[in-house]
């Protein structure tokens, strides 16, 4: 598996930089919608992205003309629209990683009646690419496209553990500046310790009170960002420890299977 980045020239002039900036800002608008948010007003979007209202309006109209947003009739509000779905579906429906990992996670989810996830890192979050709900598990609202913060969830900690020490140090330095910074850093170190010892790490209730994760990197030792995880909607300590014990081996086996499957992907 690969995700190479091309060595890129900087934009050759100020116009080029401005133009690239407009593309960046336009796409940021699509990212500023949160789960459960139906429509956002032009003013709210401008505020979130710190853009002048007129600039926001021009970008919004362009996104709407291209089918990425839908302008709510007779109002100043916009909703996400079909082109976002088509784009995401084009990625998910044709990703070799998703294709190889899905059946492995499906087996895992069915066998243990748990929610299984495939995530990759995207900025400060782990982006869910696949969610296999086990039979009868409560809906954990972790559908593809959902985000789990790197700082506060086991999938994020598992990703960070697989990175170079430079990247780890940058992250830890940033974490220290956040609220409860030292406690967060301590949690990450504990996760690193668990990963070293058992190959998996866990987090319970730090991000969403009712939700726990056990996570393992798919390819530890590589810069690749894929992580698999199981999620459980319970914070009961007895259940939690049973959950961790039960899942460690299964999760590591699944990670090894997926790693083997994706080794030859271009």
């Amino acid at each position: 598996m690969r995700t190479r980045s091309q060595p890129l020239d900087a934009p050759d002039d100020a116009d080029g930089a401005r133009a690239a900036g407009a593309l960046h800002r336009g796409l940021e608008i699509l990212r500023c919608f949160q789960p459960g948010e139906s429509a956002l007003s032009t003013g709210e979007i401008a505020r979130r992205l710190a853009l002048p209202r007129n600039t926001a309006r021009r970008l919004l109209d362009t996104l709407a003309a291209q089918g990425f947003l839908f302008r709510v009739p007779d109002s100043d509000a916009f909703r996400l629209h079909v082109a976002c779905f088509v784009l995401g579906q084009a990625v998910l429906g044709n990703s070799a990683l998703v294709r190889k990992a899905t059946p492995v996670l499906q087996v895992l989810a069915n066998r243990h009646d748990m929610h299984c996830l495939l995530c990759v890192r995207d900025r400060d979050d782990m982006l869910v690419l696949a969610h296999l709900p086990g039979n009868g598990g409560p809906n954990a609202a972790l559908d593809p496209g959902s985000r789990l913060p790197v700082a506060d969830t086991a999938p994020g900690h598992a990703w960070l553990w697989a990175q170079s020490s430079d990247i780890q140090n940058d992250w830890l330095a940033r974490l220290r500046t956040m609220p409860r910074g030292n406690a967060r850093v301590a949690t990450v170190y504990q996760a690193f310790h668990d990963l070293m010892q058992d190959g998996v790490c866990s987090s319970f209730g730090q991000w969403r009170r009712d939700l726990g994760f056990v996570a393992a990197p798919v390819a530890p030792g590589s810069a690749d960002s894929a992580v698999i995880a199981c999620a459980q909607a319970s914070t009961d300590p007895v259940q939690r420890s049973r959950f961790e014990r039960q899942w460690t081996v299964a999760l590591l086996q699944a990670a090894a299977t997926i790693r083997n499957e994706i080794r030859h992907i271009d």
Binding site: E37, L80, F85, G88, V91, L127, P144
Partner: peptide, 26 residues
């Protein structure tokens, strides 16, 4: 994503972050 070997591009996983998630929970 840029594929070195063939000098081709394709959508990377991050394109899923462009509104797909919130849209599916509308």
């Amino acid at each position: 994503d840029y594929l070195n070997r063939t000098a081709q591009y394709r959508l990377g996983h991050a394109a899923v972050a462009l509104g797909f998630g919130p849209l599916s929970t509308l």
